[in-house]
Simulated assay, not measured.
Amino acid sequence: DIFVSNQGVIEILPGNTFTGLKFSGPFNQKYILFRIKELGSAWQQRKLSEEVSLFAIPPGKYTLQVRFPSVTDQRFWLIKTIVAVPRFYQTWFFKVIMAFFIGIGIYIAWLWRARQIRKQHLLRTTIASDLHDEIGSALTRISLSSELMNIKKQMDTKIVERISTDSKSAIASISDIIWSVDARNDNKDDLILRMKAHASNMLEGLATINFEVHGLENVVNLPQLVRQNIYLIFKEAINNIAKHNVNPQVWIILNNQLTGMTVTLKNTIEQRQKAAFIGQGLKNMEMRAKRMKASLDVVNEDGIFSITIKMKRW
């Protein structure tokens, strides 16, 4: 005899924190007992004329049971299903999607961390290699010169000059390595100033220098790996120009265009220049170009020797 509505399921939509239920029955019945099985087994009593209030029921499916106090036979109870519809962020689908994206985020963070560790290891390996190549050879020459002077048991001006030259070279190499790994120098202005200073120091009075920069107006910072290897390739090229040329003309061109970044070093040559880059110097340049994922082109024709580094746009 108790009824609440003709619906099969009572739905509580998202945002409805308060829901009221009213019951009807025979005139001689004044009270009802009700319970929601999933929220508790105890029966609660209300007047038949009173409204039963449901407040802030968590999302889920519930079973409402209502009876008169004297009716114990379950066949005569009112049984209704109540469904509290969850908000979209309370659904399992949303939680699975969020768990998926959180997992992706953790994986990306792990990849980033692993990449940073690899970069650190590469930097340490690079520094060790540079110290071995640049400083080790200079110190070896100094040691051999000292031993030779010790054998002669007398002052030899040529040996002293050689030791002085090798010492200055070692000091300059240490300065370059420190500069290359210092994060405060990770900008294009420091790189250009360093390149101009080295070219001026090595070629002053020996060559005519033309330095051109194009398309770098909006470039500020450079990756340490790029800055270091470009400078060391440049340094190697300038040193070879100073060693193997007499009064050359030198062009240094940095050109940053939509098609990519190119660093070009050109100089006029004589016949003896043909052998200038045969050996370890060119191999070191190619190795450094590969480190920054760039290509290295060496051309010797029509009285011009050129080295071109090509990479993606800065």
Score class of each variant (00 low, 15 high):
I10F: 04
L144K: 06
Q44L: 15
L216P: 00
I2V: 09
I10G: 02
F55R: 13
L148H: 01
Y31E: 14
Q154G: 12
I135Q: 04
F101C: 09
T126G: 07
T19M: 14
L193I: 10
S173L: 03
E51D: 08
M149W: 04
M311V: 02
I135H: 02
I163F: 00
A276N: 07
L232E: 08
I106N: 05
D297Y: 10
I159H: 02
N210A: 09
T268D: 03
N218F: 12
H121D: 05
S164T: 10
I104V: 13
S295T: 14
I209W: 06
N245K: 06
T126D: 08
G205D: 00
E161T: 02
L78K: 01
M98N: 10
S49R: 07
K152V: 04
P14T: 11
K152S: 12
E212S: 13
I151W: 00
V4C: 10
N239Q: 15
Q116K: 00
D182R: 05
N245M: 08
V85S: 08
G25E: 05
K152N: 05
F23W: 11
E301P: 02
E217R: 05
I106W: 11
L148S: 11
R184M: 01
T259L: 09
L131F: 02
I171T: 04
H214Y: 14
N240I: 08
Q271V: 14
S173F: 00
E204F: 13
V250W: 03
W43S: 05
V160N: 00
S175I: 01
Q45R: 11
K235D: 10
G303T: 03
L191Y: 07
N300L: 15
L296G: 04
A183P: 11
E204K: 13
A128C: 05
L203W: 01
F277W: 11
L265N: 12
